[in-house]
Simulated scan of single mutants.
Amino acid sequence: MPEHTHASPATHDGNSRRLVLAFVVTALFMIAEVAGGIISGSLALLADAGHMLTDAAALLVAILAVRFARRDPTAQHSFGYLRLTTLAAFVNAAALMVIVVIIVWEAIRRFLAPAPVMGPTMLAVAVAGLLANLLAFWLLHHGSEEKNINVRAAALHVLGDLLGSVGAIAAAIVIMWTGWTPIDPILSVLVSCLVLRSAWRLLKESTNELLEGTPLGIDSVKLQKALCREFPEVRNVHHVHIWQIGEQRLMTLHVHVIPPHDHDALLDRLQHYLEEHYHIGHATIQMEYQGCEEPDCDLTHHAAQSAGHAHHHH
């Protein structure tokens, strides 16, 4: 469906390449951080590696989204494969929750029985991690002029990760200067909270999309009222369904109208309005001319309007 792809293949390729590069950088450093965390005995590094895993996963979802968005729909999958990315985001978020629980559990154990931590090793790995994050962020930030939601999400992930690396560096310096090891589990819990926040948001959004929920930011009741207000021919709007697949918003609705002179023009105006105000690029509108069981749009609203007009005439 050509009318729904707004980006040229060239920007897609550019995005895809940047995403793949950022993914490679992040994944390699995640492995380095896990190794560093185990060698130095630092939980903050492991927590940061958990955070980098969320980044790597977010980047992978973004890469898949760019790839799948290019696949043509089939008779079997009329929307193409965009839902796979939502599913991947959901799995990613659920896995993160588990990681956070493990890290917090381990932090509590460490707090009760402090373990030795090698400050210098921890510092070296944390600084390298910070540089890797900066590189990944630079790659992504360059690519997000074309505002792809997945690239944006990945850039935000990496930004949160920068904070995680800074935390690990701070913990390493404290341990090297004062030898106070509990700072390590304390900071690992703080980093976990960052991970939890992004994981929770991701879980909420992907669940909403998988359950065919109304896209965030659209109030379908307000939308119905807006249609009645903007189009004098519209008596009422019902059987409204709005959902989202990938970045594509879809809608079906029944519109009870006063028989128009030009049916197609009204349909066109309705579709334009939905696209312009709600970014719904694909609306299936069923027009009805007969009276229907539902109450009129907003009789009180019309009454108020006519009262207002009467008032003006005085």
Rank of each mutant, 00 (worst) to 15 (best):
H6P: 00
S8T: 15
H12K: 13
D13R: 13
D13L: 12
R18E: 03
R18M: 15
F23Y: 11
T26H: 04
A32G: 14
E33N: 08
V34K: 00
V34C: 02
V34Y: 04
I39N: 00
S42D: 01
A44P: 04
A44S: 14
L46S: 03
L46Y: 06
A49T: 02
G50T: 09
D55M: 07
D55Q: 08
V61D: 00
A62T: 10
I63L: 14
L64R: 02
V66P: 06
F68E: 01
F68D: 00
F68T: 08
A69M: 10
R71Q: 11
P73I: 06
A75E: 11
F79A: 01
G80V: 02
G80K: 04
L87I: 14
A88G: 15
A88I: 11
F90D: 01
V91S: 09
V91Q: 01
A93F: 06
L96P: 05
V98G: 09
I99V: 14
V100C: 13
I103E: 01
V104R: 12
W105S: 08
A107F: 00
R109M: 13
R110A: 00
A113L: 12
P114E: 07
G119I: 00
P120A: 10
T121S: 14
M122H: 03
A124Y: 07
V125K: 00
L130Y: 03
L131S: 05
A132Q: 03
N133Q: 09
L134F: 11
F137A: 14
L139Y: 08
G143Y: 04
E146T: 13
E146M: 10
I149R: 05
N150G: 09
N150I: 01
A154P: 01
A155H: 04
H157D: 12
V158I: 10
V158P: 05
G164W: 08
S165W: 06
V166R: 02
I173T: 08
V174N: 01
M176H: 07
T178F: 07
P185H: 01
I186T: 07
L194V: 12
V195C: 03
L196G: 05
R197P: 02
E205P: 00
E205Q: 14
N208R: 14
L210A: 06
E212T: 09
T214A: 09
L216V: 13
S220L: 09
S220H: 06
V221E: 15
K222W: 04
K225S: 11
K225R: 13
A226H: 14
R229N: 08
H241A: 07
H241C: 04
W243F: 01
Q244T: 04
Q244F: 04
I245K: 01
E247V: 08
M251S: 03
V257P: 11
I258L: 12
P259T: 12
P260M: 10
H261K: 15
H263Q: 15
H263L: 15
H263K: 14
H263W: 14
L266E: 05
L270P: 09
Q271L: 02
H272L: 10
E276V: 10
E276T: 10
Y278P: 07
G281N: 04
A283S: 15
I285Q: 04
Q286K: 11
M287Y: 00
G291Y: 08
C292Q: 10
E293H: 13
E293W: 10
E294N: 12
D296P: 06
D296L: 11
C297W: 08
H301R: 14
H301Y: 14
A303Y: 09
S306W: 13
S306K: 10
G308S: 12
